[in-house]
Design a protein around this nucleic acid. Structure first.
Length: 183
DNA sequence: TGCACGATGAAC
DNA sequence: TTCATCGTGCAC
């Protein structure tokens, strides 16, 4: 179980998104370790990507996205749920990968299929915005016995406002995995 | 200072 | 299809 290093995140966003599938997301909170296998992600390519929050430019909200790779960008959506992203590429690109669903592996009590639910299930909220994913309480590791898997590519969810970007195949998930959202 | 609107999820 | 609920970004 090797923790993913800075070089892993500091690469092309689409490659990072694909490589994150099958990896283990780990969060330690109050002595409880929660682990979920990443089964669904979306790539947000940076300032030119109209579906990406960083397309608004550098603001208080997006500053984490414009920072160095390997940090968590957590935000509140619809005033109710949180969503987690991992920042990718070189500092200043404003690119990230949204984690949309995980498969419960350890200490996860409720459903995790969807970005809002997985955050709720793993105790992830705004306190973790800007948190280093190379820390000891919130990180991602390789899966020791990862079997071969087929990756499905689809348009991203809920980005109808993003003009032609809506059609880009930037959502990736593991084929036939029951924990993928909206199938 | 105010207001419209979400990278959602669940109910009806 | 509707609704809960609030931080953000932008208009005024």
């Amino acid at each position: 179980m090797d923790k993913l290093n800075r070089a892993f995140y500091e690469r092309d966003t689409i490659e990072v998104a694909n490589d994150l599938l099958g990896k283990h997301l780990v969060h330690l909170e109050n002595g409880i370790q929660r682990v979920g296998k990443i089964v669904e992600v979306e790539a947000y390519l940076g300032q030119h990507d109209l579906a990406c929050h960083s397309s608004k430019g550098l603001t208080k909200r997006t500053q984490v996205m414009f920072g160095p790779a390997g940090y968590a960008y957590v935000y509140l959506i619809y005033g109710i749920y949180h969503c987690v992203n991992v920042v990718t590429e070189k500092e200043g690109q404003g690119a990230a990968v949204l984690i949309r669903a995980v498969e419960p592996l350890l200490n996860i009590a409720i459903r995790t299929q969807g970005p809002g639910l997985l955050c709720k299930a793993m105790g992830i909220d705004k306190r973790l915005n800007g948190h280093d994913l190379l820390s000891d309480d919130f990180f991602i590791t390789t899966c020791p016995d990862q079997l071969p898997m087929t990756i499905i590519k689809k348009p991203r969810i809920g980005v109808h406002y993003a003009k032609h970007w809506e059609k880009r195949l930037l959502r990736f998930y593991i084929k036939n995995n029951p924990y993928v959202s909206r199938r």
